[in-house]
Design a protein around this nucleic acid. Structure first.
Lengths: 200, 200, 200, 200
DNA sequence: CATGAATGAGATTTCATTCAT
DNA sequence: GATGAATGAAATCTCATTCAT
């Protein structure tokens, strides 16, 4: 294996171990030692591949946010009907939270940093912009294909993502308060209703 | 000042200083020393009034969440028209975020603790139940007064709060992406549209 | 109650509470707060009656060592036969340990201080001198009454007390290793055998 | 020096420094900082090799008690005559106290912990069982070789060790009360007298 | 490349003691 | 006399980071 690939592989290994640690012990309750043990490497090597803990955490953020982004884009790729596509988008978003609860929470953990670390804020901001664009594109398609009424696509995309995030939060706070499938259905209906073209 | 009130006053003073510290240095980057300095008291006295840092943080959570709850209830108290009332509820929610950005961020920081500290999860869960109830009550009034169509009030309350929280998040990540007043207007419209009785 | 008696009473109350604390939490694991709570007084008052913690501890030492001394002297007071008297002395010593195990351990706790606090060493030394004298007096009586053979009374007293302390220690380390009554009997026999006048 | 031996060497170095600190500052009056300074290492490294202060102290106890045990076993190894052997045992015991007064005091300091720390009690108990066995073996040899009268070897071993410990205590409390060589002689005589076979 | 021993700053927490009331 | 709020020193312990091997 060429040099660079070893490095990439090692970095990936360490990042994955870090995700595991954050998920297991909490954002501020794991040490570099924990990461080393989880990754099965020595403490020293982590500092060889990453400048410091902050640098490592930035890689973790990129990794986690990128992963979620990829899942969303993949899920809606092969569908053509905008109505169907939007439904899949919303459903996929909500399922990520349900099915990879810990993963979503690792993502969430970075929110505490936005006030202190501009780089974190910018990365999160960038990913949310991507989320919105992915969603907005679907809406625009629908408007162009004349199946959705005319709306500001970005603003609606914001609202849809807000609904998804907000409901996910409430579900994370207390799973017993929701029938998750019901909620997914309702949100889809709500969005569909809003996008429905007025009947003449 | 009577003896008993000193304790209440001092606890309040320390809690407020802690909110300031969380906001200033970040949820995980402030020390008891910082709190002491901010409150203008000695390090020792904090442990006289609070069992430990966790105990202090629980008081902070109760304080912040309670404060937000109180503002919401007060704002809608003197209005009778359910349509107006719901609009005020939504607008107030969003304004809290905008006007007390740091305060809301402190509140948000606790969300990331729900996986590690069950007590935090329970407290947040309790407050969200209250939020939903406050909102649901308005919807029920509207349905009873025949100005809203028949909906599951709690589920819609969840959705409304989700919209508010979700939008707030995106705004905190990047203020430049939004025209906040526009967003407030749109969300209100969306909710109103959903609750509108069908025209015969 | 006159002033001085209140003071004596209060001091006694605090000393007794301290003994309880030492016994319960260990010599170095109790705070002035613990003493205050146990005695049912305020923290401040302890420093009114005692200069500081060291001063309080010296009072505790005097109290505990004095108590043990008193029990020993009382037990042998009304007996005349030296053989009987010595037996009672040994038996009483061993019973103090068995019956007031915690009390004896409080006494023991001060042993850690003899290297650091000359005052503690002197007090313990004084009490051990008294023990020896109490024991030696009995031996001397027996020698004078011609029921014991001629021995250096003080040296034998040392040995007897050593036997008692040493056995007590081993018993405290592991009660299951001993049949205590057996041990008491054996030590008494050993001492008696040593003091027996040679048969011509 | 090979890697693995560094750990052993460093642990030993820290344990020895701790013994020095206990002896110098008192069992409860030394800090990890003191140990670090005495050992000439950093504070951090102590917690690298030992879980915490308790863990370190357990190692100290094992070290000290083990050392004393070893000296006793070595001293009597090459002697065959049980009478001589027992005398050497007693003399060696008493000499350890006299010659390594500080060392023995450290050992003694642990006695006061048996009420609070079960692990300490168990370790001390184990070592005392060993002491008794070492001593009892000599007595049994003597009985078998027909030079001692028939006695319960373990019970007499308890008594001998009690004498040694008890006298050591009194000597530590006040050296001026004893002529140590005299005491050694007397205890040996006492034991010998007790073991002497009755003359027919 | 890789290891893990070593450092030292800093965090939480405890507590004897003081002192205004 | 009595209280308990307040202080600040000091203790234990954690951990990111460095560096010799």
């Amino acid at each position: 294996m060429p040099r660079t690939e070893v490095a990439i592989e090692r970095k990936h290994q360490i990042v994955k171990a870090t995700v595991e640690c954050v998920s297991k012990y909490g954002y501020n309750n794991f040490s570099m030692q924990d990461v080393a043990r989880t990754a099965g490497v020595s403490k020293g090597i982590i500092h060889y591949y990453f400048l410091n803990k902050d640098d490592l955490m930035m890689s973790v953020l990129e990794h986690v946010a990128g992963d979620i982004e990829r899942i969303l884009q993949t899920g809606t790729k092969d569908v053509n009907d905008p109505v169907k596509k939007l439904e899949i988008f919303v459903t996929t978003c909500l399922n990520i939270v349900r099915e990879t609860k810990e993963y979503y929470q690792v993502n969430m953990d970075f929110w505490t940093q936005i006030n202190q670390k501009e780089e974190v804020r910018l990365t999160i901001s960038k990913h949310y912009r991507n989320f919105r664009e992915t969603c907005a594109k679907i809406i625009i398609e629908g408007v162009e294909q004349n199946v959705f009424k005319k709306v500001d696509a970005t603003e609606l995309a914001s609202a849809i993502i807000a609904l998804v995030d907000g409901i996910s939060l409430q579900w994370l706070f207390d799973e017993t308060e929701f029938n998750y499938d019901n909620v997914v259905k309702h949100i889809n209906e709500m969005v569909k209703a809003y996008l429905q073209k007025p009947v003449h």
